[in-house]
Amino acid sequence: MDDTSAAYWRATLGLLVKVLVIWFVISFGAGILFAPALNSISLGGYPLGFWFAHQGSIYVFIALIFYYAKKMGDIDRQFDVHED
């Protein structure tokens, strides 16, 4: 593997780690492990932990995918490996 492609793969993995950490913290963290603690805070009529499990995590997932797709496009262009 030459230097550029090694650097490209490092950049990709860096982005992946960032995305997956948020993914984990929102769903398994806020939605499950810390839900009982978060329930003492309320968001509108929702207890917060319940909200993360039933609503919030889904919105965050969507944002995460589009963020990832955009950043990945930037990385592709930066290392000149994009299509067309």
Binding site: V19, L20, S27, S57, I58, F61, Y68, M72
Partner: peptide, 10 residues
């Protein structure tokens, strides 16, 4: 739904 994050980036 969370599986789509894995699908999209992995």
């Amino acid at each position: 739904t969370g599986g789509y994050v894995l699908l999209a980036c992995l």
